[in-house]
Design a protein around this nucleic acid. Structure first.
Lengths: 194, 194
DNA sequence: ACTCGAATTAACCATTTAGTTAAATTAGAG
DNA sequence: CTCTAATTTAACTAAATGGTTAATTCGAGT
């Protein structure tokens, strides 16, 4: 069993749950079944361990975004449908991921340099909107923010939504499934001309 | 000058910036210009101080939501326009608020009991959608999540959006102004029949 | 001026926490 | 089997941190 990998694995979980400053090195060591000094042996200090975990998680978060952003040779309708579907699915597998990253990003103002493909994908979206007579000429960043935000928001705001009365008639799970169906409809009618 | 109030005031700022576990009692005391023991005198312990700050901030966050959710006697078009406009404006005044609350809410799973008006406002939205032949019959929670999420997401994800290329051609400020115009259009066309 | 309670402080204490060091153990090459 | 380097640990230290206590100041009422 690789200790280094084990440490990273549990550190990922704990950091996500409790945030950087809420997490204790001892706690990670215990959970990984190793001595605390070993964390320092491999990662020098808390910052080092955190940074390694953090870039890992950023990558993990961006991967599905990247995958769903780029599907050339498909009509926009299908691409949006696929995006919403695929992205919500991947968020379901890591419900804490987004809140954690966005929270840490806003506290420590860490540098955030995503791979350029995503930004390019958004630009590309704008080009296609301009080319197709069927769609309005909307700023692609506005559109992307709307689409991504609509997918992501339920996960970030889950406790709030539940407090607001969601889950009184449906489960969160059902709500998400319904969302995968309805969101592409709303967005598509929103950007189509008439 | 009321020391108690001063403490709460600076605690609000620091907690929002650094989170609960990232904030030191000493730091708050220094910023408030009082002795650390005074914090314990008034609020018993860190948890007590935090809780008081937190419910204050929750209220502060819910107020504009409540105000913009309830404007009877107006056509849905105007209400959505007003909501987006008013809510984005109020978010601009407290850019850190949302990220902080949602982050803390997901870490410590605090109880979140908003005033019932907001939940009721959402239900009411559903009723009106059903009554009006012009609109699709969309689950009001889905719609509300989309509207609120679309307004809120830029603030939560600001560092990410900037990393993704926003602010290469426009400022964040301009982006928000544009958003206030464009969002109601997208959403309205999204829920209108044809 | 005196009293009494609230506000405020200085000086502590006990724990927790990140980080260090040197020794012990393990694993792999020869 | 042995030597060596990588891995792992026990036992520390120093600093930070939340919290306490006892003493002091302040202000309103008498």
């Amino acid at each position: 069993m690789d200790s280094r990998e084990k440490i990273l694995e549990v550190a990922r979980d704990i950091f996500q749950k409790k945030g950087k400053s809420g997490t204790r090195m001892q706690e990670i060591a215990d959970a990984a079944g190793v001595n605390k000094a070993l964390l320092h042996y491999y990662f020098k200090n808390k910052d080092g361990l955190f940074k390694e975990v953090f870039v890992d998680l950023i990558r993990k978060m961006l991967l599905p975004l990247k995958q769903q952003m780029f599907q050339k040779n498909l009509p926009l309708e299908d691409r949006i449908q696929n995006f919403v579907d695929g992205y919500i699915n991947s968020l379901k597998e890591n419900p804490l991921l987004l809140t954690f990253i966005l929270g840490e990003l806003s506290m420590n103002n860490m540098p955030f340099v995503p791979p350029p493909e995503i930004g390019e994908g958004i630009i590309q979206l704008g080009v296609e909107l301009k080319e197709d007579e069927e769609f309005k000429h909307i700023d692609p960043f506005q559109l992307a923010t709307t689409i991504i935000g609509s997918c992501v928001f339920p996960f970030i705001a889950r406790p709030m939504l539940i407090g607001l009365g969601l889950e009184k008639s449906t489960t969160f799970e059902e709500f998400l499934e319904e969302r995968k169906k309805i969101l592409p409809q709303i967005i598509l009618s929103g950007i189509k001309i008439k």
